[in-house]
């Protein structure tokens, strides 16, 4: 059975970060809804969010060229030479290495309960989880959550800004892009200035790229095969999943395009 579109959707939601942070008010969701409702011109929601579509599409093409020439073959080789459990172990390890960044962002958002969960996970998984290869914390009922500086900026009230697609970075917004730079700075490993640390950083970045790309081989191929406009399709999946993420994992049905649009079609015979 092939992995389906929604697997990717769920994956996007996870990787983009299941933000449970409290987001105050008019944010992406509202802006997105505003766009969707725009005098019945539902598609303008997308274009309003994507004023740099021309640039983004060029970057998207660059990304896809690198992707099919290098990333996908590497991800396939990685899959062929490793066992499923090893790959799971690596994903756990990388997730554990990201914990300090999550912790800082939990704290910056004033989410102290989540911060203590993050700290406990790090302690448990680094020790009895063999440095993070295993995830005993999950079984102990301390769930993993994701957090990043882009989310923190959202909590602080920064507007998302336009949709932005960057090669190798994938879909984001200006706020998300600035957030990524913040996350890099928050990583303790970045501040250790030795050659060994430098190699570790590069290997980690490479491993992270593979670990992230490998489970997406089929879902992304699936979307590309099934879409008329791959760029618009991914943008929509990203925007929709992000909207939910901003709403702290709750699905908000108020923002959907109005069914009045459907109703009018009664007359359109």
């Amino acid at each position: 059975m092939t992995i389906k579109i929604w697997t990717l959707a769920a994956f996007l939601t996870l990787t983009v970060g299941a933000a449970h942070a409290q987001i105050s008010d008019a944010d992406d969701a509202a802006a997105f809804a505003e766009g969707l409702k725009n005098d019945g011109a539902a598609d303008e929601g997308a274009t309003n969010q994507d004023p740099w579509e021309g640039f983004n599409r060029k970057m998207f093409a660059v990304n896809n060229a690198i992707d099919s020439a290098a990333l996908v073959p590497a991800a396939k080789a990685y899959r062929a030479t490793t066992h499923k459990k090893q790959r799971k172990g690596l994903r756990n390890l990388l997730a554990n290495a990201r914990t300090p960044v999550i912790l800082i962002n939990d704290l910056l958002q004033g989410e102290f309960k989540r911060a203590s969960e993050t700290a406990s996970r790090f302690a448990v998984n680094t020790t009895i989880g063999f440095g993070g290869m295993g995830d005993p914390a999950e079984r102990m009922g301390i769930p993993q959550h994701s957090e990043d500086f882009g989310q923190t900026l959202a909590v602080w009230g920064a507007p998302p800004g336009p949709y932005l697609f960057m090669p190798l970075m994938g879909p984001s917004t200006i706020r998300g892009g600035v957030g990524s730079i913040g996350d890099i700075a928050m990583d303790p490993a970045v501040w250790i200035r030795t050659d060994a640390a430098k190699y570790t950083r590069y290997s980690r970045a490479g491993a992270a790229g593979l670990a992230l790309r490998e489970p997406l081989i089929e879902p992304l191929q699936d979307i590309e095969d099934n879409s008329l406009d791959y760029y618009a399709s991914l943008r929509s999946f990203y925007m929709q999943s992000r909207k939910r993420e901003i709403a702290n994992g709750r699905t908000n049905f108020d923002d959907l395009p109005d069914i009045g649009d459907f109703e009018e079609f009664d007359e359109l015979e």
């Binding site: 929604w6 959707a9 769920a10 939601t13 539902a42 598609d43 929601g45 997308a46 879409s227 008329l228 406009d229 760029y231 618009a232 399709s233 943008r235 929509s236 999946f237 929709q240 999943s241 909207k243 939910r244 699905t251 908000n252 959907l256 395009p257």
Partner: peptide, 18 residues
């Protein structure tokens, strides 16, 4: 839809883009 991601909305964005 699944987890807040709707198929017809994604199709709408593709089609209007095309």
């Amino acid at each position: 839809g699944a987890d807040g991601i709707w198929l017809a909305i994604e199709q709408l964005e593709q089609f209007t883009s095309v």
